[in-house]
């Protein structure tokens, strides 16, 4: 501790009983109120979304989850297309981001020279700092044309017999959204995975080397199995991020109200649909239906994030007690 940062004695002069009688309970109560406020805020958010989706929940019930049409003119709403779009785009993002994040973590903890390690780690973290609206803008004007003119024709000519690559190339669609979501999730998964990889006990690594393992064998047999929980938790956290991203997705996915198997075709996600619909939704049932979408989204992200945090907490306790 640097002595200059310790407060000077005159600032520590004892104050009268009055200060103690008022300030002590005030600070305790004020900070307790702030902490309780966090919990109350969560409950309030949930209550508001449940309350305002009431009309749509009453009208459509759970059938909303399985119904495909989104038809404001006839007052018929269903979320199935958006649920499928959310699942497909998030899972593709996760399938691409998780292996990348593992590889980056291994690079950062085992391979990179010490002088490169920190700068690269900071740059990967900065990827998460790019505002989603700017990533969406990039998706519209840079990634979209590249997909439509180059990548999608290539995929189609090679794998066109697969239904997921079956439609004509277009700049806006599920593939574009999935790639943007991949960029957003990589830093999140990397942060958690890297921490877990770095926590590998060095004596285990030395033992593997002493047995004659190559670096690759040491990583796959010692580091990655030890980081298993962290990787899982990181991936789930990334999934939570991908599920909930609204702006960038609505910018690049094309906002079709119909789910199609082809990744090149436009689609929609829960979060993207809320962003795209809310301003224009009819007051009453239309708004309530959008709130129902928010309710599904809130429930799934709370479950997903809760699960990830529990896994992290358990992994931390386990390594702490070991």
């Amino acid at each position: 501790m640097d002595p200059s940062t310790v407060p000077a004695p005159d600032r520590l002069r004892l104050t009268g009983r009055f200060g103690d009688r008022v300030a002590e309970p005030a600070l305790r109560a004020g900070s307790a109120a702030a902490a309780a406020g966090v919990v109350l805020l969560l409950l309030w958010i949930a209550a508001t979304v449940v309350n305002q989706s009431g009309a749509a929940v009453g009208q459509f019930g759970l059938g909303f989850l399985l119904h495909q049409r989104w038809d404001p003119v006839h007052g018929i709403y269903g979320a199935l297309d958006d649920i499928l779009g959310t699942l497909v785009s998030s899972l593709i993002a996760l399938a691409l981001a998780t292996p990348l994040a593992i590889a980056i973590s291994v690079y950062l903890t085992e391979l990179a020279p010490p002088s490169v390690r920190r700068p690269v780690a900071i740059l990967v973290e900065l990827l998460a700092a790019i505002p989603s609206v700017i990533l969406g803008l990039w998706g519209i004007l840079v990634l979209g044309p590249f997909l439509a003119d180059d990548l999608e024709p290539l995929l189609r000519s090679a794998f066109g017999w697969l239904p997921i690559f079956g439609s004509s190339p277009s700049p806006f669609g599920v593939l574009n959204a999935a790639l943007i979501l991949t960029i957003m999730t990589v830093p999140i998964v990397t942060t958690v995975t890297r921490e877990m990889c770095a926590a590998t006990p060095p004596e285990l690594k030395d033992a593997a080397y002493a047995l004659g393992a190559t670096r690759a064998e040491m990583v796959t047999m010692v580091v990655l199995p030890g980081a298993r929980r962290g990787i899982l938790a990181g991936a789930i956290l990334g999934l939570g991020r991908a599920l909930g991203e609204a702006i960038a997705v609505t910018q690049v996915i094309g906002n079709a109200d119909q789910f199609r198997v082809s990744l090149f075709a436009p689609g929609g996600t829960l979060a993207g649909q809320i962003a795209a619909q809310y301003q224009s939704a009819n007051p009453g049932l239309g708004q309530s239906a959008v709130m129902y979408l928010a309710l599904i989204l809130l429930a799934s992200s709370v479950i997903v994030n809760g699960a990830a945090r529990l896994i992290v907490a358990r992994a931390a306790r386990r390594s702490g007690s070991a």
Binding site: L42, I45, A271, Y278, A294, L297, L298
Partner: peptide, 22 residues
């Protein structure tokens, strides 16, 4: 409290917007 903060951090910001709107 830590768990509540983490869950609040995981609430999609679009839902936060919808909540304040509501």
């Amino acid at each position: 409290i830590r768990f509540a903060l983490d869950v609040l951090n995981g609430v999609p910001t679009i839902v936060t917007g919808v909540f304040v709107f509501g």
